[in-house]
Amino acid sequence: MGDITTLTRKRASIASVFFVPVALGAATLAQGQVSSDDEVVREAKPSRSVENVLREEHALFSDRLTLEPGINYSYSDRSQLALRGFLALDAIFLGEINVDNVKSHITTLDLSTRYGLTDRLELGLNIPVVYRSSTYRSTGVESGPELSELTTDDGGLGDISASLSYRLLPETQSRPDVVINLGVRAPTGTDPYGIATREDPTNTNLVVPTELPTGNGVWAVTTGASLLKTLDPAIVFTNLGYTYNIEESFDDISASEGKQSGKVDLGDSIRAGFGTAFALNERLSLSLSYSHEYIKKSKTTRGGETNKVIGSDANVGVFSLGGTYAMSDKTSIVTSLGMGLTDDASDISLTFRMPFQP
């Protein structure tokens, strides 16, 4: 798309990858002797606070089913936009939008399920429902004194994802616990392609989309590795991940009148991060973390011509404060407050989750 000049670089992101040293203490971990083959033997079950940290940041490999309903709210405020394309929820909206300021609110309700088939294999499934609301503001033509605004909101099913985690190597005195994972994301949400625009009748300088997407519109495959090492009195682990978006054809990828078919190849992404968490007692833990995601440029193909979308690459950095509290042996509360440290990240993100094992 040669006429695309600028693209907002906002990816709600975030992938959750961390490098986390967790101050836990030998009594909390309840780690026992070392066997003859040098493998770490845990004689007692970890505390609930430790289990919560492992479940959220690594993999617990529990032989019990875990249901985890959650809610996430993110807010971003972008100013001085003059767009010919629009990036929303990891996808490209192809249209002509002229705004000076955009305030976006995204609320996601989701249900995650996890089940450890063995002490080495864990399955996961996530089903999200997304509600989005964006308010667009602009001054009059030629930057006149009049200020007008329009609001667009939409909601519906998001992109469903499934994952498989496998413990490749168990932890020993000399090596970390090594887990590899593989995931698939299906385009079950509303895609952002071919969405029409509307113009403010009192301000021709304000052009906004008529609806907002709830998904990316393409299939994606994710892979990664997680390493965990017990260093009394701490647990240290690091995660790396990569997402490959599969190129997809659409009947319409333009907001102009009439259908304009084409292909969209969303940019792949690389994720990494680090942080620390502290198990304060048997039930309560606190954490600090930083995650970073680099997103490559996207491409569009129309009429046999392929063009990179200028400005579609992004760096998403988020610093998070989190905590977990075990209400009982079956139910916990997980909270996280994320603060965007780069221009492409949401300004703020707040998450509440409640994993429980029936």
Score class of each variant (00 low, 15 high):
G124P: 05
S226T: 12
G32W: 10
A59Y: 00
A196E: 15
P69R: 05
R78E: 13
V184D: 00
A186E: 01
A44D: 02
T202F: 07
N281F: 12
I97Y: 11
T351I: 05
T5L: 14
L65Y: 15
P170A: 15
S285L: 04
N126S: 12
S174C: 00
G95T: 08
D177L: 03
A220L: 08
I127A: 05
T135Q: 12
L280W: 11
L212N: 04
D90E: 15
L54Q: 07
T202I: 03
S16A: 14
P145F: 09
G158Y: 01
T342V: 08
E51R: 09
Y290Q: 10
I71W: 07
N98L: 02
A162G: 09
F237V: 00
R120E: 08
S36M: 05
V316Q: 03
P201T: 06
T139C: 00
L284H: 13
T301Q: 09
Y166I: 10
P176W: 05
S328R: 04
D251V: 08
G224P: 07
E247S: 11
R48W: 13
Q31R: 13
N315Q: 11
V102Q: 07
S13T: 13
Y193T: 02
N101P: 03
A27N: 10
S226I: 10
T172F: 02
L24D: 01
G116H: 06
V41L: 09
T335M: 13
L284A: 08
G85F: 01
D90Q: 15
A345Y: 02
A59L: 01
K299A: 11
R132H: 07
S289D: 09
F19W: 08
D343I: 05
S287Q: 13
L164P: 14
Y131V: 12
F356W: 14
L121K: 06
V208C: 04
F93R: 06
S256Y: 13
S289L: 07
I246D: 14
G317Q: 05
L182Y: 10
I270T: 07
E142Q: 05
G156Q: 05
E122A: 08
M1K: 11
A279C: 03
T230P: 01
F356Y: 15
A82Q: 10
Y193S: 01
K297H: 10
D153L: 01
M1L: 09
D200G: 01
L60I: 09
K330Y: 04
I246L: 14
D177M: 03
D110V: 04
V218G: 03
P170I: 03
R114W: 02
T238D: 00
S289E: 07
G194H: 04
D251S: 14
S291D: 11
N239P: 01
R9W: 00
R78D: 14
L227Y: 06
A88Q: 12
T197E: 05
S346D: 14
P209F: 01
D159M: 10
V207A: 02
S36N: 07
V207S: 02
R11Q: 10
D153G: 03
T204M: 02
V236P: 07
S320K: 06
